[in-house]
Write a protein that binds this DNA or RNA. Sequence first.
DNA 1: GATGAAACAGCCGAGCT
DNA 2: AGCTCGGCTGTTTCATC
Lengths: 152, 152
Amino acid sequence: MDKIDLKLISLLQKNARFSLKQLAEQVFLSSPAVSSRIERLEKEGYIIGYQAQIDEERLGYHIKAFINLEMTPKQKPTFYPFISECPNVLECNCVTGQYSMLIKVAFASTQELDMFIGKLQKFGNTQTQIVFSTAVRPRGIQVGDVERLEQE
Amino acid sequence: MDKIDLKLISLLQKNARFSLKQLAEQVFLSSPAVSSRIERLEKEGYIIGYQAQIDEERLGYHIKAFINLEMTPKQKPTFYPFISECPNVLECNCVTGQYSMLIKVAFASTQELDMFIGKLQKFGNTQTQIVFSTAVRPRGIQVGDVERLEQE
DNA sequence: GATGAAACAGCCGAGCT
DNA sequence: AGCTCGGCTGTTTCATC
């Protein structure tokens, strides 16, 4: 994990479809060298995958929201499979505080959102925050400028 | 926007580095046809970009958190540029409820997180939820199974 | 990590349905 | 109009240094 690895990560965060040649030019290496570095970064778990970012709004999912779900730990075994199968769930984290799960969702309408929240009731109380607008779109940690060259 | 477009979107969400040929095989079209469809999806704003997903934990950012920030609307013009420049901010949304901004961040330690929260105080009160674990990693809306073929 | 050759994929045109 | 096919160009991969 050196500066070049971080630069490659940063470039792939900007555009995962850069060709090896384009990447090679920007880090002043040959394409085979870049290829083997990326392979290593994938194998060692730094790079989890490459995802196309979709505009949910453009696809008709106009309502985005964060749902706080108050849940007892013993429900986790049934909750986890359920939540990961929901196509409208964009992210779900277990967090500190009164509400134990924080779920990000996208729906076509408030009606659909309401129905989903209804389904969640069997797990516990919910509190919902609807998204008005997005100041910073989901993105990775910005590694370009920082000097964090640990051997992790 | 037909079934094939949705299938392409779904495939690129799974792996943005699929080659045109690989995509073509899976939708039973030729690669030029796939190429022009993707070009159109990008131009029309369905596909915003392609991002490598990084394991922040693996890079040493062990603390992830959601910060609720209570802020008056008049502070937005100074807050927006500030928040989008922070390399540790993974996402930021304006939401309904008592807390007007919901900010997702990643830091190497609770100390750094604490310092950041300190900096936010000049905008308003905060309430922080630290992430214990992730049930569903950030992902796009799952379009594969649903029948949402509107001309949006 | 670099170089060169071979395999491969992507791009642009023409012709077809 | 959009899809498929063929040729050229550029990219990736492998062997060698």
